[in-house]
Nucleic acid binder design. Structure first.
Lengths: 221, 221
DNA sequence: CTTTGTGAATATTTTCACAGCT
DNA sequence: AGCTGTGAAAATATTCACAAAG
């Protein structure tokens, strides 16, 4: 508890808001592509599955850019959310692993659309080193630390065979990466302060699996 | 409100429990591989990042299989969770798209490990049709409806170029699929009753992006 | 001495419902 | 009429803290 604190009362923005924003953004970007100019919380709720009141509540934390009787301007909402999330500025990211999965990720438009720029791709296969993948040169994995350090890279995507996952994570973290997106099935450990996302889409399927098989989650008291 | 209801009081199991179980399961499977036999809620909390008390609270909904002073038996906990989620029994799933992403998914062990069996892979490329991918024959996409219907398939993974995403979803849903795992960057719509998961791992990166750039989420009141 | 199972307290999230603007 | 912004209520989720068990 600091002795001196700002005079103005400050309200913390709930974490949930930041988890919702990317969902809205995804939807808004697509609406923008389709030429839609304004959208009401009701309609946006229909597309995203989020309660309209919740959407409105989320948005007011960043100033009132809604227009009563009309809705929200898609364009300004997209810009606003991108600014809030920081995806309006480019972020450097490295990809480790140039196999099937790595190729798919490199070509995937999602990263680019959200401000991530793949600065380097690493692989251990000498046949691949020197060739290009999605216009980015593949570099020998032994040079990873050097490149990550030189380019001050914060983000890394791991798309190597599971057995190598942990050692790759250790290496990139050692070189300065602080956010890891782990696409392998292996759970990896990282030191305090490093954020690891184990992207396991099957996890969501499993939740559904249960919902499908049981009518209602009831147990005797 | 039914006129006749069971005499015993029934307590609903919170949704959050089912969202946590796959996280525990992932961790437990790996501990099992490493030969660990028991684990305390404290230690499990350390690996998963979940509060130990929350873990204990989640688990008691399914009977008390904890041992005081020791912890939980990894083996029985894995079995129990798999039974609860339904991943102890095989589930048929089809994969649409045999490109880089499709290949990566087909080879990914996560699906198999969680009870999903890829029954068929569909693609529109005549060169690929008839060949095999991860031991599963690639079938012409025009035969998708026929196969899905015949095999009574509930789950479909979409890994086609974004432009085709919606039409593929429409087709598989029409054929009887009720859960779709959409790996494309395109948001797709499906009728009421069909569950669509838009697996967008970049979403999580975006949340982090914000957390990195702002020390604390504060706004003037 | 360790760890579970759990009542009670706290915090967060979701939802309703409506005043007020366009 | 249609929609936002928001107080208040309700529902959920998280965390603390400790008695009881091995």
């Amino acid at each position: 508890m600091p002795l001196l604190r700002p005079r103005a009362k400050l309200k913390k923005i709930p974490e949930s808001v930041f988890e919702h924003l990317p969902v809205y953004l995804n939807c808004l970007l697509q609406l923008q592509d389709e030429g839609v100019e304004t959208v009401s919380s009701n309609r946006l709720g229909l597309w995203t599955g989020v309660n309209p009141a919740a959407i409105r509540r989320d948005l007011i934390h960043f100033g009132n850019f809604g227009i009563k009787g009309v809705g929200y301007t898609v364009r300004s909402m997209v810009e606003e959310i991108q600014k809030i999330l920081g995806s309006d500025q480019p972020h450097k990211i490295v990809l480790v692993g140039a196999g099937n999965l790595g190729s798919a990720i490199a070509h995937h438009s999602g990263l680019r659309n959200h401000g991530f720029h793949i600065t380097a791709i690493f692989d251990s296969d000498v046949d691949k080193v020197g060739t290009k993948l999605a216009d980015v040169e593949i570099i020998d994995i032994n040079r990873a630390s050097e490149v990550i350090r030189r380019e001050s890279i914060d983000f890394a995507i791991i798309a190597v065979p599971p057995v190598y996952a942990q050692s790759v994570v250790d290496a990139v973290v050692e070189a300065g990466v602080s956010v890891v997106l782990n696409y392998t099935s292996m759970m990896v450990r990282a030191p305090e302060g490093v954020k690891v996302y184990n992207t396991d889409p099957v996890k969501e399927l499993l939740v559904t699996l249960h919902n499908l098989s049981v009518r209602d989650n009831l147990v005797p008291t």
